[in-house]
């Protein structure tokens, strides 16, 4: 019965998401698209934060590496989709591999600081290396590849569907990963790194791989961002973006992948809706954030998991234990 309910629920959500371009206004579709590509960044963050216990502020940097790789290759007409996207992901993995070597030697606040610095380095390079990145003017004129432009029943849904599919695949992929033996080991590292080392696990290597996975997902979000808005600009990867991801994930619940998506949805939606009424909307978001941190420190998903059935799921997926 549990299974059936679960699948019915998934099906409803999926159908609803798939139907958005037809049912809702263009505005709503645009906003959903935006929430989705930012969600990828949130998932990337939440995966590291929730599973391994590492708060990485370098997530937007990987978005930047992917975005800039595509932007540079395509505006200079060197490579085009899909090769540019492959090159972008390759660049992200290389960058993450190198960054990973440095940052994985640290934990906690030091990890946060190192990733902050790396993120700022990428941002500064994007801003200052103007002959390649065009500096604060940003690179423009990146067009969406034709594969992403197909229409269904007169609605241009190509980009939306491909993004939706990617988000779903990534979400379920990451959820599956958290339940795999690799995920369990990551949780072990989160709980006690020294014990995992003592048990003989290659902790360094596993953290490194987790860092690469997280970077890869952030890279995916960069690809969609750059194709969607057609502009790559340093402001997309500055400290504000890192803070935005952090706030969104804390909103949703830092130990939850689904929570990351919901949190990002809430933050983005509030930004757009409130800003139509007042230009001081940031105050309202900040107040909400304050309440969330004070009264629901595990975020929105934390509150949802207080429901018994959801809690069972939570125990199963995130702590790796089954409560009896």
């Amino acid at each position: 019965m549990n299974q059936a309910v679960k699948w019915v629920f998934y099906l409803i959500v999926l159908l609803f998401l798939a139907a958005i371009p037809f049912l809702m206004s263009d505005f709503f579709t645009t906003m959903t698209t935006r929430v989705m590509y930012f969600s990828l960044m949130a998932i990337s963050f939440a995966f590291l934060a929730g599973q391994v216990g590492l708060i990485s502020l370098a997530v937007p940097a990987f978005l930047g590496v992917a975005g800039y790789t595509i932007a540079i290759l395509e505006t200079r007409e060197i490579l085009f989709f899909p090769y540019s996207a492959i090159a972008a992901l390759g660049m992200v993995l290389v960058a993450a591999a190198i960054f990973g070597i440095f940052v994985n030697r640290s934990q906690g606040i030091y990890f946060l600081m190192l990733t902050l610095i790396l993120g700022q380095i990428v941002w500064a390079v994007a801003l200052q290396w103007a002959s390649v990145t065009n500096g604060s003017n940003g690179l423009i004129g990146i067009t969406r590849p034709e594969v992403m432009q197909f229409t269904v029943a007169g609605q241009e849904v190509g980009f939306y569907y491909i993004l939706l599919l990617t988000v779903l695949l990534v979400t379920f992929g990451v959820l599956a990963l958290t339940r795999s033996s690799f995920g369990m080991k990551l949780k072990g590292i989160r709980e006690s790194e020294s014990r995992m080392i003592m048990l003989g696990y290659p902790v360094m290597r596993m953290k490194w791989i987790a860092f690469m996975i997280s970077a890869f997902i952030a890279g995916l979000s960069g690809i969609f961002l750059v194709y969607y808005i057609g502009v790559m600009h340093p402001s997309a990867i500055d400290l504000d973006s890192a803070a935005m991801v952090l706030i969104a994930v804390i909103f949703g619940g830092i130990y939850s992948i689904v929570g990351a998506i919901i949190g990002m949805g809430i933050v983005q939606t509030f930004e757009i809706f409130l800003s139509a009424f007042t230009s001081r909307y940031m105050i309202i978001i900040a107040l909400m954030f304050l309440f969330v941190v004070m009264y629901a420190p595990k975020g929105i998903m934390g509150s949802i998991y207080k429901i018994k059935f959801m809690d069972a799921l939570y125990q199963k997926w995130y702590t790796g234990r089954k409560k009896r």
Binding site: S25, D26, F27, T30, R34, N134, S136, N137, G138, I140, L225, I229, G230, V231, H233, S235, A236, I272, S275, A276
Partner: peptide
């Protein structure tokens, strides 16, 4: 720049404006 694109999209889709005044800094210009 990224925010600007979203705001412009909002103005176009939500408010259906045909005339936009802005943006105002160099960063957003391109």
């Amino acid at each position: 720049a990224e925010q600007l694109m979203t705001r412009l999209d909002s103005l176009r889709d939500r408010n259906e404006v045909d005339i936009v005044i802005g943006p105002s800094t160099g960063d957003e210009g391109e």
